[in-house]
Write a protein that binds this DNA or RNA. Structure first.
Lengths: 242, 242
DNA sequence: CAGTGGTCTAGACCACCAT
DNA sequence: TGGTGGTCTAGACCACTGC
C-alpha cells in the first residue's frame, strides 16, 4: 500500500479514510480483526497521528470500524451483539424480544429487470433468491424476500442458511467476505395479497408496511436487494431524525 | 456564563457543547445568528481552539449549528433552504416537487391522556391542535394532525399559520422561539377510516402509512406530537441506514 | 507494566469570505 | 486585507486493557 499523494486536492484525512476502506475492500483486514495502531497507521501513510485519528473518527461514525480504548481499533462485524439488528428497525410496541427465523426458500433464478437494475446487473444474470419469515411470540411479523448476485454468493443454499445461527449479514461476512456497510430503504403502505396474507396470518387486503432495502458493501457497491412486508399491529418501524 | 469547571468528569469538549446548547436554549443567540468566533469561544470557556472546535464539530453533526468557511458559525434555522424538509422524508417516486398546504383547523383543546403523556403534560392541560393537508400535483398525500403545549405557543391561530409563507417549524422559530432539534418517529401501516379516506381521496380501508412523530427542542424537551397519514401510491418514505 | 485509544494544548499554514 | 473556518502537525498527559 503506497503512501499518500501530497499534491492531491482532497484533504489528507479523507485520502487516508479512502485508503483504509480500499484495504478493507481488498480483504487486508477481515471483520473482527484489529487494525494497526494509530501510530503504525500514521507511519504507514506518512501522516501525523492526529490526521489518522480524524480518518478513524469518520470510519467509526460510519460503523465501519469500532474502537475499544486500551485494546485497539477493530473492523466492524455484523456478528457483534450491538450490530445484530442494525438494519432492522422493527421493534415491538411493548417490551422487545427477538425473532425466530423460518426459511421459506433459497434458489438460483434469473434477475428480473428491476432486481438487475438495483444490483447493477444485466437482466437475466443469475441471482440467488431467498425467502423467509420472521416470527415474534409465535406470530409471523415479517415476510422477507431478497436477491443476491450469484457471483459473490456461490454456494449459498438453504442448508448453509439453516446451519448458520446468526443473522444473514453475519453469514455473508464469514462465508462470502461481503460486509454490508449501509443501506437505503423505501417505505410504503400496501394491501396484503391473498398469498402474503396467508403467510402473515392476516386478512387479504390488510395494510402492511412494505420496506424495500438496497444494501451496499465497501465502496458503495450494491450487493443485496430486499423486499420486506411488515405486519405492524403489535410492532412499529422506529426512526430517529436529526 | 461562567467558565468550565476543571474538575468535572465529563470531557471538556462535551461540557462546552452543553454550555453552548444551554446558551441557545436561553436565547443568547437566535436561529440564523452568528456565534462568536472559535477563538472568542475558546477565550470565553478557557479552553484551546481545538477543544472548542471539537464541540462545534458535534453540534454541526447534530444540525444545531452550521459552519460557513470564511464567514463564521451560525445557529441552524428551519428557514434555511436545506432544512426545509429535514423532517419530512416523503419523496415522490419520480422527479420531486414541492407541497401545497391546506389548513383544516387550528383550535385550543384539552390534552388527551396520550397527547399529554407524549408532551410531558398533565391530562387536560391546554394544547393547540392543528390539522392540515399537504398536496402534491393537486392530489392530497399527507393528512397531518399535531399538538403543541399552549404555554409555549400562545397566540398561534389559523390566521397566523395562513399568513406565514414557510414551514411550520420555521414559524415556530420566528414567532415562538421554539427550534426543533431532533425527532423520533414510529411508522406503521394502517387502513383508512371513512373520514381519513375522504380527505385523502382514497377508498375506506385503503392502506396508509401512519407516522407518529415526537419533536424535541434544545435540551431534549418534547414540544410537538404529530400524527401523519401518508398516501404512498406515488410517493415513498425514504430512509438511510448506517 | 507496556501498549492502546482519549483528551487537550499550541501553533503553523491554507482557503474562503467580506469589505 | 483582516477575520473566519479548515487542515495538519508535534507533543503532553490521562484512562483503560491485557499480560
Amino acid at each position: 500500500m503506497p503512501p499518500v499523494k501530497p499534491r492531491s486536492s482532497a484533504p489528507l484525512y479523507a485520502q487516508i479514510r479512502q485508503l483504509i476502506v480500499a484495504a478493507l475492500a481488498a480483504g487486508e483486514w477481515r471483520p473482527g480483526d484489529a487494525l494497526p495502531s494509530e501510530a503504525a497507521l500514521a507511519a504507514r501513510f506518512g501522516a501525523s497521528a492526529g490526521t489518522v485519528r480524524r480518518a478513524l473518527d469518520e470510519l467509526t461514525a460510519a460503523h465501519i470500524v469500532e474502537r475499544r480504548q486500551g485494546s485497539g481499533t477493530f473492523v466492524a462485524t455484523h456478528a457483534a451483539p450491538r450490530q445484530q439488528f442494525r438494519f432492522l428497525r422493527l421493534v415491538a410496541d411493548d417490551a422487545a424480544s427477538g425473532f425466530a427465523r423460518q426459511l421459506l426458500g433459497c434458489r438460483r433464478v434469473r434477475a428480473s429487470a428491476d432486481v438487475a437494475h438495483a444490483l447493477t446487473l444485466r437482466t437475466g444474470e443469475p441471482v440467488i433468491e431467498v425467502r423467509r419469515l420472521l416470527h415474534r411470540r409465535e406470530r409471523p411479523v415479517v415476510l422477507d424476500e431478497l436477491w443476491l448476485p450469484e457471483r459473490h454468493f456461490e454456494g449459498l443454499t438453504a442448508e448453509v442458511i439453516e446451519a448458520h445461527p446468526g443473522t444473514l449479514y453475519a453469514l455473508f461476512e464469514t462465508s462470502f467476505g461481503v460486509h454490508m456497510v449501509r443501506a437505503e430503504e423505501k417505505l410504503r403502505a400496501v394491501a396484503a395479497t391473498p398469498q402474503t396474507a396467508a403467510l402473515l396470518g392476516v386478512q387479504a387486503g390488510a395494510p402492511l408496511l412494505s420496506v424495500e432495502r438496497l444494501a451496499y458493501t465497501y465502496g458503495d457497491r450494491p450487493m443485496e436487494l430486499r423486499r420486506g412486508l411488515y405486519h405492524t399491529d403489535a410492532d412499529h418501524y422506529r426512526n430517529e431524525l436529526n
